[in-house]
Simulated assay, not measured.
Amino acid sequence: MSRTIFYARVSTADQSLNLQRTQAEKAGFEIDEVVADHGVSGVSTKLAERPEGKRLFDKLRRGDVLVVRWVDRLGRDYQDVTDTIRNLMRQGVVVKTVINGMVFDGATEDPVQQAVRDALIGFMAATAQAQAEATKAAQRAGIDAAKSDPKRYRGKKPSYDQRGLEQVQSMTASGSGTSEIAKATGLSRQTVLRIKVDPAAAQAALERWSVSEGP
């Protein structure tokens, strides 16, 4: 009997396992089991090397459905993400995303569908890695700036948190429109547009406030 397993990677305090699961259930997924890794980086730690990631591979069987909020939950490294999805498809596991309802199924034999599917896997994996690299660069810049001049004017406090910023970036990469993203995140259209235009600046703004405010 096939099962639907939801995998979550909760890497920061701003993220929430319950929120990720709730989003999946609202999207229509009936989840049989949840597997989650906490405090694990998607950049430096491959899925197969994470404590619960290892258990996930042991659990999945042919015909099962693996649900993730987006491909960045599987990893932020291009090669790792593409290898993971293709390996799961070869094993007969269908991978689905909550955001935009992407489906990666290895059962299709139509060459055009296969080409589109494989191109989409590569694009989404590359986007996840690019977002991670941009975020890291912005974090370093924000931290360095705050340390060098902690009393300087920080600008208006962001109306979003780290989770909201990542959701805007993920949905943007998936092709969602500004209004759709604003509704899903609870942010204004203007805020969503600012993040879309300059995500590095949006990340730096978060860092300025968090560093200046202290623990």
Rank of each mutant, 00 (worst) to 15 (best):
R90G: 00
D77E: 11
R90A: 08
K136V: 11
L74M: 09
I85L: 09
K136Y: 00
T84E: 09
I121H: 05
V103H: 02
L66T: 07
V116T: 06
D105E: 04
G106P: 12
A130L: 12
A130S: 15
A141V: 11
M124K: 15
Q129G: 06
N100I: 07
Q114P: 02
Q91R: 15
A107E: 10
A130R: 14
Y78G: 03
G92F: 01
N100H: 10
G92V: 03
M102H: 06
I143F: 07
A130E: 10
P111I: 11
Q114H: 08
A138D: 09
V98G: 02
T135H: 09
V68I: 13
G75D: 13
T108D: 08
V93S: 04
A128S: 14
D118E: 15
R76G: 15
A126E: 12
E109G: 06
A132E: 08
R86S: 10
R86Q: 14
Q114N: 06
F123M: 12
D80K: 10
G106E: 02
T97G: 04
T97R: 03
A125N: 11
R86N: 15
L66R: 09
L88H: 06
A137V: 01
V93K: 02
P111F: 03
P111L: 11
F104S: 06
A132Q: 05
Q129Y: 00
A137E: 07
A134T: 13
D77K: 14
Q131F: 03
